[in-house]
Each structure stands twice: as structure tokens, then as C-alpha cells.
Amino acid sequence: MLSDLWPGLDLRHLAAFSAVARTRSFARAAETLGYTQPAVSQQIRALEKIVGQRLFDRSSGRAEATLTEAGAVLAAHVDALTARLAVARQDLRDLQRGEAGTIRVGAFQSALARILPHVLKRYRAERPAVQVEVIESNDDAPLLEQLKRGALDFAFALLPLDSDSLSHRELVQDEFLLVSKTGEGLPGRIRSVADLGEYPLIVHRSCRSAAALVSYLEARTGTPNIVFRSDDNAAVKEMVRAGLGVALLPELWMQLGGNEGLELTPLTGVVPSRTIVLAWRKDRLLTPAQEAFVNVTTAIVARPRLERVAS
């Protein structure tokens, strides 16, 4: 039982500890919690007595309250406990709401533009009382962090994932394309990854798939000749049209349109595709509304070819 672990332990002790650890100040922690500073100090002293170790260094002359080694260990566990309690609270709220409520979904740019609209159209027809809130990002990494903290219910993301904490449903194998200026005659000349080393390259700046692609090239061709990086779709295409280089972009991204004056060469078998998935916390109890979102997304997106996403 919980009472057998640390007799006398109270959530108020952990709330005070977390606030001091986060703000590095007893005074600022008191402001955050709406307590007096002596009350916060009393909670910390009680917690230190319960765990039997000093948690903060409060030596004279120090401007901030700093965690001891024991305090740092406890802080990591308290953070994990806070995340679990946040998930538990949301699970109970969702259960109470039944078919209504809100689903919070994170999506990176191409998934937001090419996948989510078709998912929402069908989902809203099936579950009109459920609201879907969407959080946007240039990269899936911050979305996955929010997912782990319980701030999101689902996230469109890329493999690999942390399989210990996240479950997923695989959706699309998104192949990379070589994007070149029309008339340069590159289609048919790219037979292996080594051929890419001959060209100045334009790639995404901040997403995980771009980092993985660059690492793949470095391991096989040496340092690639990257002349421009951007997460702006229009800027990348204009750089290619200006003849400054060729771009390596996912097929789903290029389906956003505006490809006049560009030649698109599939790189299937030359560089690995990226796998797009829908992810959620493994320890999350999905409500019927959330299970329906997973099923609708899979039904619409899981197609052999990306052209069928809008079907």
C-alpha cells in the first residue's frame, strides 16, 4: 500500500518540493503555490524528515536553493509521478464525458496539411460531439515530449519511437524525392546514394527525418554538400528553381502543390523512406472516442500509395 512506502508522505510535501526545485527559490515557490514562505520551508523540512535525507542546499550566501544529489534523484521521480497523475486525471475526465470531450492531437507540417484534414472530415461525421484540438510543429520531437507529459492525446510522428512508453499505429511509408530544376536531366542518373554526392543539396533544417537523412548520407558518401537548409516549403522550391541546388524532400511534403518548373525523381531504394505513425502513451486507457480516432486515421491513411490519402 502507498501508506507503507513513506509513512506521513503527503502530496502537499511533493508540491512544495517540486515548486522549489523548479523555481530554485523558497520565496518564488511560495508565490507559485499561494503559500507563505515559512509554510513552504515547513513542508520541505517535513519531507526531508520523511525520506531521511537533505534535499536542498540552503548554505548561507547562496542566492538560490539548489538540489542535493538526493534531491535530484527524488525530483526525477516526482516529475514522473506528476505526469502519471496528469494522465490519470485526464483519463477520469474523458471517462466521465463519454462520447463528448476533447482530443488533443499534435501534427508536423506535412501530416497537418495532407493527412489530418481528411481524418477530421470523416471523424467529425462519426463523432460530431467530440472536439479535436490540433497543436502544430515543424518537428515531431516536441510533440512527442508533450505526448509523454500527457499534454497531448495523440501525435503524428516518425519512427523510431520510445517503444517502452509509446504505442503507435503505422500509417504511411513516405519516400524521399530528388527535386531538381526542370531541364537538368537528373531523372535516371541517380542510381545509388553515391550519385547524390555529386550535387549541392538543399534539405530541411529542424526535423528528425532530415537529421536521419543527413546522417545516412554522411555514413555512405562522406560530408554531403549542403548549400541551404530551410523548413519553408516555398523557400526550398525557389532555391531549386534558381538553380542553387537539388532538394531531398519527402513525397508527402511535395504533394502540397506548387511544383511547376520542378522535376521529381523517386529515391526508392537509394535512401530510406520515413515511416509516419500515429502515436499515444502506452499506459493510456483510450476512451471509445479516442479509439475511434485511431481507427478512422488508420482507415483513411494506411494506403499503399500516398496519392490515396484523400480518398
Score class of each variant (00 low, 15 high):
Ser311Leu: 09
Gly52Ala: 07
Glu198Arg: 09
Leu147Ile: 07
Pro250Phe: 10
Val271Cys: 05
Ser311Met: 11
Ala247Val: 07
Arg191Asn: 13
Ala211Trp: 05
Thr82Ile: 08
Met1Leu: 12
Ala125Thr: 14
Gln96Thr: 13
Thr298Gln: 12
Arg58Cys: 10
Val119Ile: 15
Arg149Phe: 00
Tyr123Ile: 04
Glu184Trp: 08
Asp91Leu: 09
Gln53Ser: 13
Val172Asn: 03
Pro38Gln: 08
Gly101Met: 05
Val51Thr: 12
Ser215Trp: 01
Arg45Asn: 14
Leu278Glu: 05
Gln53Thr: 13
Glu198His: 06
Met1Gln: 12
His118Met: 09
Ala80Thr: 07
His168Val: 03
Ala29Thr: 06
Leu47Ile: 08
Gln290Leu: 11
Arg127Thr: 09
Pro272Asn: 02
Leu112Phe: 07
Glu218Pro: 05
Val78His: 04
Asn259Gln: 02
His77Lys: 12
Leu213Ala: 04
Ala65Gly: 05
Leu278Pro: 02
Trp280Glu: 03
Gln131Asp: 15
Ile44Gln: 02
Thr82Gly: 07
Glu69Gly: 14
Arg241Ala: 07
Thr223Cys: 02
Leu201Pro: 02
Leu2Pro: 06
Ile202His: 00
Val51Tyr: 07
Arg205Ser: 13
Ser137Arg: 04
Lys148Pro: 00
Ser59Pro: 05
Arg89Phe: 15
Leu116Cys: 04
Gly261Val: 07
Leu81Gly: 07
Val296Cys: 05
Asp283Phe: 09
Lys49Ala: 14
Asp164Ala: 14
Ala76Ser: 11
Arg12Leu: 11
Glu198Gly: 12
Arg229Asp: 00
Val271Ala: 01
Gln290Trp: 00
Gln255Ala: 14
Pro128Trp: 14
Val203Arg: 03
Ser209Arg: 10
Gln146Gly: 12
Gln53Arg: 10
Thr275Met: 06
Val119His: 01
Asn138Phe: 12
Gln255Asn: 13
Asn295Thr: 09
Thr221Leu: 13
Arg104Val: 14
Tyr35Cys: 05
Ile276Tyr: 03
Ile190Cys: 11
Thr82Phe: 00
Gln37Glu: 15
Gln96Lys: 14
Gln53Pro: 04
Tyr123Met: 04
Pro272Ile: 04
Asn138Arg: 08
Asp153Val: 09
Ala310Gly: 10
Ala75Asn: 11
Ala219Arg: 15
Ser110Val: 11
Ala210Met: 00
Val214Asp: 09
Leu47Ser: 02
Ile300Cys: 02
Ala155His: 01
Asp140Met: 04
Thr23Arg: 04
Ile276His: 03
Gly71Gln: 02
Ile226Asn: 04
Thr36Met: 05
Met239Leu: 10
Val193Met: 10
Ala289Met: 08
Val172Ala: 15
Thr102Ile: 15
Val277Arg: 01
Asn138Cys: 05
Gly269Trp: 06
Asp232Ser: 13
Phe228Gly: 12
Phe154Thr: 04
Asp283Gln: 11
Leu95Ser: 15
Leu67Ala: 06
Ala242Phe: 07
Leu74Ile: 04
Ser215Phe: 06
Thr68Gln: 01
Asp4Glu: 11
Thr32His: 12
Val277Pro: 06
His168Phe: 15
Val309Leu: 14
Ser165Gly: 00
Lys181Arg: 14
Lys49Asn: 11
Glu238Gln: 14
Ala129Gln: 15
Val193Leu: 02
Asn225Val: 06
Trp6Thr: 08
Asp94Gln: 08
Gly185Cys: 06
Asp162Tyr: 04
Tyr199Asn: 01
Ile44Ala: 03
Tyr35Gly: 05
Val78Met: 06
Asp57Pro: 03
Ala39Phe: 09
Tyr216Ile: 05
Glu64Gln: 14
Ala302Trp: 01
Ser230Asn: 00
